Measured scan of single mutants.
Amino acid sequence: TTVKVNGTKYKFDTPEEAQKFAKKAADKYNLKVVVDGDDLRVE
Protein backbone atom coordinates (compact mmCIF):
# COMPACT_ATOMS: atom_id res chain seq x y z
CA THR A 1 0.00 0.00 0.00
CA THR A 2 1.37 3.43 -0.86
CA VAL A 3 0.50 6.80 0.60
CA LYS A 4 1.13 9.90 -1.46
CA VAL A 5 1.80 13.12 0.45
CA ASN A 6 2.80 16.32 -1.37
CA GLY A 7 3.98 14.32 -4.39
CA THR A 8 6.11 11.95 -2.31
CA LYS A 9 5.16 8.27 -2.13
CA TYR A 10 5.61 6.24 1.02
CA LYS A 11 5.29 2.47 0.90
CA PHE A 12 3.83 0.35 3.71
CA ASP A 13 3.59 -3.40 4.23
CA THR A 14 0.06 -3.30 5.60
CA PRO A 15 -3.00 -1.16 4.85
CA GLU A 16 -3.31 -0.47 8.59
CA GLU A 17 0.13 1.13 8.76
CA ALA A 18 -0.61 3.14 5.64
CA GLN A 19 -3.93 4.32 7.06
CA LYS A 20 -2.30 5.41 10.33
CA PHE A 21 0.43 7.32 8.52
CA ALA A 22 -2.05 8.96 6.14
CA LYS A 23 -4.24 10.07 9.02
CA LYS A 24 -1.27 11.59 10.86
CA ALA A 25 -0.11 13.42 7.75
CA ALA A 26 -3.63 14.65 7.02
CA ASP A 27 -4.01 15.98 10.56
CA LYS A 28 -0.58 17.61 10.49
CA TYR A 29 -1.15 19.45 7.20
CA ASN A 30 -4.89 19.96 7.75
CA LEU A 31 -5.72 17.88 4.66
CA LYS A 32 -7.88 14.87 4.02
CA VAL A 33 -7.18 11.25 3.14
CA VAL A 34 -8.42 10.15 -0.28
CA VAL A 35 -8.69 6.45 -1.08
CA ASP A 36 -7.35 5.75 -4.58
CA GLY A 37 -7.94 2.07 -5.29
CA ASP A 38 -5.54 0.18 -3.02
CA ASP A 39 -3.55 3.31 -2.30
CA LEU A 40 -4.13 6.46 -0.29
CA ARG A 41 -3.53 10.10 -1.11
CA VAL A 42 -3.37 12.99 1.33
CA GLU A 43 -4.55 16.20 -0.31
Results as ranks from 00 to 15, higher is better:
residue 15 P to T: 09
residue 6 N to T: 03
residue 38 D to S: 11
residue 21 F to M: 03
residue 12 F to H: 01
residue 40 L to D: 02
residue 37 G to H: 05
residue 28 K to I: 09
residue 5 V to Q: 01
residue 4 K to W: 15
residue 11 K to W: 14
residue 6 N to Q: 06
residue 15 P to D: 05
residue 8 T to A: 12
residue 11 K to H: 13
residue 9 K to L: 14
residue 40 L to G: 02
residue 35 V to H: 09
residue 3 V to L: 02
residue 10 Y to T: 03
residue 21 F to A: 06
residue 8 T to H: 14
residue 6 N to A: 09
residue 11 K to R: 12
residue 23 K to V: 07
residue 25 A to Y: 15
residue 30 N to C: 14
residue 32 K to R: 09
residue 10 Y to C: 09
residue 18 A to G: 03
residue 14 T to N: 09
residue 14 T to Q: 04
residue 24 K to H: 13
residue 5 V to K: 00
residue 17 E to M: 08
residue 41 R to W: 07
residue 26 A to E: 04
residue 41 R to D: 03
residue 10 Y to N: 01
residue 16 E to G: 08
residue 5 V to G: 01
residue 31 L to V: 11
residue 43 E to H: 05
residue 20 K to A: 14
residue 8 T to S: 09
residue 35 V to Y: 13
residue 1 T to P: 06
residue 9 K to G: 06
residue 19 Q to C: 15
residue 34 V to H: 06
residue 7 G to F: 05
residue 27 D to F: 08
residue 43 E to T: 11
residue 14 T to R: 03
residue 16 E to F: 07
residue 28 K to E: 10
residue 43 E to S: 08
residue 34 V to F: 12
residue 37 G to K: 04
residue 24 K to L: 13
residue 14 T to V: 03
residue 39 D to R: 04
residue 24 K to G: 09
residue 9 K to Y: 13
residue 16 E to N: 05
residue 8 T to E: 08
residue 33 V to I: 12
residue 40 L to K: 03
residue 10 Y to R: 03
residue 14 T to I: 04
residue 15 P to E: 08
residue 1 T to L: 09
residue 21 F to S: 02
residue 40 L to P: 02
residue 35 V to L: 10
residue 4 K to R: 13
residue 8 T to Y: 13
residue 37 G to Q: 05
residue 32 K to C: 13
residue 4 K to L: 15
residue 39 D to E: 14
residue 28 K to Y: 14
residue 39 D to Q: 11
residue 34 V to N: 05
residue 8 T to W: 12
residue 23 K to G: 05
residue 42 V to T: 02
residue 29 Y to G: 07
residue 38 D to H: 10
residue 3 V to D: 00
residue 1 T to R: 11
residue 32 K to F: 11
residue 25 A to K: 09
residue 27 D to Y: 09
residue 28 K to V: 07
residue 37 G to L: 04
residue 37 G to A: 04
residue 19 Q to P: 01
residue 20 K to S: 12
residue 24 K to V: 10
residue 12 F to P: 01
residue 42 V to E: 03
residue 27 D to W: 09
residue 26 A to L: 04
residue 2 T to A: 06
residue 24 K to D: 14
residue 29 Y to H: 13
residue 31 L to F: 08
residue 30 N to V: 03
residue 22 A to C: 03
residue 32 K to W: 08
residue 29 Y to K: 05
residue 16 E to P: 01
residue 42 V to P: 02
residue 28 K to M: 14
residue 40 L to Y: 11
residue 22 A to Y: 03
residue 26 A to M: 04
residue 11 K to M: 12
residue 19 Q to W: 15
residue 33 V to F: 05
residue 3 V to N: 01
residue 43 E to D: 09
residue 35 V to M: 11
residue 26 A to I: 03
residue 40 L to S: 02
residue 35 V to C: 10
residue 13 D to Y: 06
residue 6 N to E: 05
residue 18 A to L: 01
residue 36 D to K: 04
residue 10 Y to H: 06
residue 39 D to S: 12
residue 13 D to T: 11
residue 28 K to G: 06
residue 24 K to Y: 15
residue 22 A to L: 05
residue 34 V to R: 07
residue 35 V to I: 13
residue 2 T to K: 04
residue 26 A to R: 03
residue 40 L to V: 06
residue 17 E to R: 05
residue 36 D to Q: 06
residue 32 K to E: 11
residue 35 V to Q: 13
residue 26 A to V: 03
residue 41 R to L: 13
residue 42 V to H: 02
residue 8 T to C: 15
residue 29 Y to P: 05
residue 36 D to E: 09
residue 22 A to N: 00
residue 5 V to P: 00
residue 30 N to L: 06
residue 30 N to F: 09
residue 38 D to I: 10
residue 15 P to S: 10
residue 18 A to R: 00
residue 1 T to E: 01
residue 14 T to C: 03
residue 19 Q to F: 15
residue 15 P to L: 14
residue 17 E to K: 07
residue 26 A to H: 03
residue 25 A to C: 15
residue 24 K to T: 11
residue 32 K to H: 11
residue 5 V to Y: 07
residue 1 T to F: 15
residue 5 V to W: 11
residue 9 K to T: 14
residue 3 V to T: 00
residue 42 V to K: 02
residue 18 A to Q: 00
residue 2 T to G: 04
residue 29 Y to Q: 07
residue 31 L to M: 13
residue 6 N to S: 05
residue 25 A to H: 12
residue 4 K to E: 13
residue 11 K to F: 14
residue 31 L to E: 05
residue 20 K to Q: 13
residue 10 Y to D: 01
residue 7 G to T: 05
residue 6 N to P: 01
residue 23 K to C: 12
residue 18 A to H: 00
residue 35 V to G: 07
residue 27 D to E: 14
residue 34 V to D: 04
residue 16 E to V: 06
residue 39 D to C: 15
residue 28 K to F: 14
residue 20 K to L: 12
residue 12 F to W: 01
residue 22 A to P: 01
residue 6 N to C: 15
residue 37 G to I: 04
residue 27 D to A: 12
residue 9 K to D: 11
residue 42 V to G: 02
residue 13 D to I: 07
residue 38 D to G: 11
residue 19 Q to V: 10
residue 20 K to T: 09
residue 9 K to H: 11
residue 2 T to I: 13
residue 17 E to S: 06
residue 4 K to N: 12
residue 2 T to R: 05
residue 13 D to H: 09
residue 20 K to V: 10
residue 14 T to K: 04
residue 1 T to G: 04
residue 23 K to L: 08
residue 15 P to R: 13
residue 1 T to M: 10
residue 29 Y to V: 04
residue 37 G to Y: 03
residue 36 D to N: 05
residue 24 K to F: 14
residue 24 K to N: 12
residue 34 V to W: 08
residue 38 D to P: 11
residue 17 E to A: 10
residue 7 G to R: 06
residue 26 A to W: 03
residue 30 N to G: 15
residue 24 K to W: 15
residue 21 F to I: 02
residue 16 E to Q: 10
residue 36 D to P: 02
residue 18 A to P: 00
residue 42 V to R: 02
residue 20 K to D: 14
residue 42 V to F: 05
residue 38 D to K: 13
residue 9 K to E: 13
residue 6 N to G: 12
residue 18 A to I: 00
residue 8 T to R: 15
residue 14 T to M: 03
residue 2 T to Q: 06
residue 33 V to S: 01
residue 39 D to W: 09
residue 42 V to W: 03
residue 36 D to G: 04
residue 7 G to Q: 06
residue 8 T to G: 06
residue 29 Y to C: 07
residue 23 K to P: 01
residue 31 L to I: 06
residue 2 T to N: 06
residue 8 T to V: 15
residue 39 D to L: 14
residue 5 V to H: 05
residue 31 L to Q: 06
residue 19 Q to R: 13
residue 21 F to E: 03
residue 43 E to P: 03
residue 13 D to F: 07
residue 39 D to H: 11
residue 32 K to Y: 10
residue 4 K to C: 15
residue 11 K to V: 14
residue 43 E to K: 06
residue 7 G to A: 05
residue 4 K to G: 04
